[in-house]
């Protein structure tokens, strides 16, 4: 934890606080809601990026971790009255167990098999959530009662939600930064570069990849609880689908995965676009945002691998050296 980190966090926190506050004071609560979603998606994309950016693993199943968090905390609250503030850690633990099931057979294999296994596990989770309807409410899902009690992770004012989302994002950014500069981060970078060479100097890929996966699963599940509390309603086809997982990875990859600010930029771009499409076309054109997302990911993969953030940084650096 150096001053460099504090500076970066302050750079994120200051506008992250000021912008929603201004809109809140102006009475634009819908804008504050959209900003909250941007924070939330940036958070999810950062979670996803722990396994991709640091361990080089392409996960198509993060919706399952999200669902683990959402369902665990909600079921604990509805059936046993346990506050979601506590339930979210139970959800995190459940997601860790699931991550062990995914990781154990696949982390020794090539990355592609990991990607496919994550889809399979996520689909099993979705089908089980549909099937075990006595617990999960099946296809109808679960509805959280409105209590407006902060003790039960519910807030009246959307500005407070935006604060929670921002706090989550800052905590995760700090954790990402800590990983980047730790022994774990170095080991992961070595593993990403050349697995066999890493193993020859005593860095065993399996263990480090597993640690990255477990951490990512835990934080994603925390996000799941947040999502359940914010919307008050969870359903398999909202939270557990492959499309949901793909959205998370598209946000991360479009923004850029090399630094923790990348996913934030991705969330700003994609969520703003999505809201703009919604405002322009209305809800009637359900597929419109999928078309835009698809085009964006194709363009990024082909013309700016590394994401928009890197592209911008390079462009700025090039501009500076050009004017000198």
């Amino acid at each position: 934890m150096g001053s460099a980190l504090l500076k970066k966090l302050a750079l994120m926190a200051a506008p992250g606080l000021a912008i929603p506050l201004l809109f809140r004071l102006a009475g634009q609560t819908y804008v504050v809601y959209v900003i909250t979603l941007i924070f939330f998606w940036a958070y999810l994309a950062q979670c996803w990026n722990i396994v991709w950016g640091y361990a080089g693993l392409l996960s198509f199943g993060h919706a399952a971790f999200l669902g683990m968090g959402a369902y665990t905390s909600t079921i604990l609250f509805l059936n046993y009255g346990i506050s979601p503030w506590i339930g979210m850690f139970a959800g995190g633990a459940a997601a860790i167990l699931l991550a062990l099931v995914v990781g154990y057979p696949t982390l020794r294999l090539r990355g592609v098999y990991f990607a496919l296994a994550t889809i399979a596990v996520a689909e099993i989770v979705r089908l089980l959530a549909l099937k075990l309807d006595f617990l999960t409410g099946g296809a109808l899902g679960l509805l959280l009662p409105i209590t407006r009690s902060p003790l039960l992770f519910q807030f009246d004012d959307i500005f407070h939600w935006s604060l929670i989302a921002l706090a989550m994002l800052l905590i995760l950014s700090a954790v990402s930064h800590a990983i980047e500069n730790s022994k774990l981060g170095m080991a992961l970078r070595a593993v990403r570069g050349e697995e066999e060479a890493a193993a020859s100097i005593g860095i065993y890929p399996f263990r480090y990849k597993m640690m990255a996966l477990l951490m990512s699963a835990f934080f994603t599940a925390i996000g799941g609880t947040f999502f359940a509390q914010l919307t008050g309603y969870i359903r398999p086809d909202i939270i557990l689908t492959v499309e949901r997982s793909e959205e998370i990875l598209i946000v991360a990859l479009v923004g850029g995965t090399g630094a923790f600010i990348g996913p934030v930029i991705g969330a700003i771009i994609l969520l703003s676009l999505r809201q703009a499409i919604l405002a322009l076309l209305g809800g009637g054109y359900a597929g419109a945002h999928l078309i835009i997302y698809g085009i964006l990911i194709i363009l990024v993969v082909r013309f700016m691998p590394g994401g928009v953030y890197y592209y911008l940084m390079r462009a700025i650096a090039g501009f500076r050296s050009g004017t000198r």
Binding site: G287, L290, I291, Y293, L296, I297, I298
Partner: peptide
């Protein structure tokens, strides 16, 4: 990306 476009 193509898959997403085709679904959309």
């Amino acid at each position: 990306g193509l898959s997403s476009i085709m679904i959309g």
